[in-house]
Design a protein around this nucleic acid. Structure first.
Length: 471
RNA sequence: GCUCGUGUAGUGUAGUGGCCCAUCAUGAAGGCCUCUCGAGCCUUCGACCCGGGUUCAAAUCCCGGCACGAGCACCA
């Protein structure tokens, strides 16, 4: 009897409702800081579809909140670079919401003129009561002219102040889902925007800004977290008012990575300012710059997210899954080198080859390492005091007497360094960071080379030592 | 509380009524190879949340539980 072979879908699922179009996708981060691991999912998935289906990827800066999540100017430069690093191609279009404010105002006005939006002067608290009790608020009955006048007052510095008025989309106060009842579309913010200053006073909220921009850009497919499901429903109601068709929408569930605790961009920003972390690329942080510095390849992140796919399940994955992809990406190019932790000197006596070469990689062609032994070698303290085999050299007893050149028994094989240079290995393990002193075999590899430290794991060469990549 | 969503091996994932006593990866255990606790190769372990129903046939459809998650912001 033959074993039945099953066909298994590889890669991302087919994009629904494509109808032989070229898809237009978008990824819309808030530029209140550089990109993190969490953002990489949106970038990888949207980017991958755009690439595979010869479509377009729009990188959009959703920077319409100057109060809670004020934009960070450097992020407008760093995000496109990181996007290109991660996706392997630059975004086809870059859209900056704060530069598109005239459009959002235009459509806000159209909404008021069309009678499906209104300016609400209720307080947030009293509107919450209306929402819960399914009652219409008094402002809902404003005439178009009244609304246009109130809208003018929202935009007038002499008029409403922040919190005194908000623009709402008229849906239906009796909708089953409370989140959808006459949702807010824009509010007044007087903090200056780092890019456009005080040019605008009324700023759209995400659901309105994103909905209008997706329409203007011709987005065909929106792929995003399922926490935004209600956003889709709100925006669909707005699209219906305008007579537009909402893009096809796909969701993914929440991903928790155990090793990355709860990091938020704003919290990281505070902690860096306070000196708890060295910078955005501190190896303890889950930012893309930190991951890249730690030797995680863009290919590995792509493979990781594509493997997780697009299910709506909330999942929890260990970082070792990402590391396993990364090992495949780096192993063939990682020269082997010895780093002796807590170096312990051993004086060798007897006959052994004082100079020679050792392979740098058992599976690939790579320039071999050369060694030259004066009178002794360094081994790890943990390996001392017992008969051992110095890898690729000889068997010795606990005192350093050479017993055999060929491997004579099953004693453990340990790595060693002749000469070498004091160095340190930095290991970031979640929030913990430790440094191990040791002796590193001499080498000429430039900064950025990923090595495999024998019996330890992969590490990347930095200016002032080694940074652990992973086991 | 209301609303929405999800439940396949330890962790992820394939599977949309029969090809499934369920795929692949990772993990764990063992072996081979290799003078690394690396890579590669081989073997083994291990799952359809529970209860009903529809059907000749259900992981797949329906109903009810249960569990978990998210939304109900003048954040994104």
């Amino acid at each position: 009897m033959e074993k039945k072979v099953q066909t298994r879908r590889e890669g991302l699922p087919e994009l629904p409702n494509l109808n032989s179009r070229k898809p237009v996708l978008r990824f819309a981060p808030n530029p209140n800081g550089p990109l993190s691991f969490g953002h990489s999912r949106g970038l990888v998935i949207n980017g991958q579809y755009a690439k595979e289906l010869d479509g377009e990827l729009i990188l959009r800066f959703d920077d319409t909140d100057t109060t809670v999540k004020p934009p960070m100017l450097e992020a407008y430069d760093s995000i496109p670079k990181q996007q290109e690093w991660l996706c392997g191609f630059p975004a086809h279009r870059i859209v900056i919401a704060s530069e598109r404010m005239d459009k959002y105002h235009e459509y806000a006005t159209k909404m008021l003129e069309g009678g499906f939006g209104y300016v609400c002067t209720c307080s947030a608290e009293s509107f919450r009561e209306f929402r819960v009790s399914k009652q219409e608020c008094p402002c809902r009955g404003n005439s178009v002219d009244e609304n246009l006048e109130l809208w003018r007052k929202m935009n007038d510095p002499e008029g409403f102040q922040p919190g005194e008025a908000v623009l709402r989309v008229k849906t239906d106060m009796t909708l089953k889902n409370p989140a959808l009842r006459d949702w807010p579309a824009a509010r007044i913010q007087t903090n200056p925007h780092p890019r456009v200053g005080n040019k605008w006073r009324v700023w759209p909220l995400l659901d309105f800004q994103s909905a209008i921009e997706d329409y203007l850009q011709g987005v065909t497919h929106i792929i995003r977290g399922k926490d935004l499901m209600d956003s889709t429903r709100k925006q669909t109601l707005l699209y219906a008012h305008f007579g537009w068709d909402y893009p096809e929408t796909i969701y993914w569930g929440r991903v928790k990575v155990h090793e990355f605790g709860a990091f938020s961009t704003s919290q990281m920003k505070r902690d860096i300012a306070e000196g708890i972390f060295d910078g955005w690329d501190d190896p303890r942080l889950p930012t893309l710059s930190a991951l890249s510095r730690r030797g995680i390849k863009a290919d590995s992140l792509r493979a990781f997210w594509i493997e997780l796919g697009l299910t709506q399940k909330d999942i929890s994955v260990p970082l070792s899954t990402l590391y396993s992809h990364n090992t495949k990406a780096i192993d063939a190019q990682a020269p082997r080198l010895a780093f002796v932790r807590n170096a312990y000197p051993v004086k060798l006596s007897g006959d052994f080859p004082k100079t020679g070469t050792i392979s740098s990689h058992s599976d690939t062609e790579m320039t071999p390492r050369q060694y030259s032994i004066d009178e002794g070698v360094w081994i790890e303290e943990d390996d001392s005091g017992k008969p051992i085999r110095l890898k690729d050299l000889c068997d010795i007893d606990s005192t350093g007497n050479v017993e055999s050149i060929d491997r004579s028994d099953k004693r453990s094989v340990v790595h060693w360094v002749a000469g070498g240079t004091p160095s340190k290995l930095t290991i970031a393990d979640g929030q913990e960071i430790t440094t191990v002193e040791g002796i590193l075999e001499d080498h000429n590899y430039p900064v950025g080379t990923i090595l495999q430290l024998e019996r330890i794991g992969y590490a990347i060469v930095e200016d002032d030592g080694l940074l652990m990549v992973h086991d």
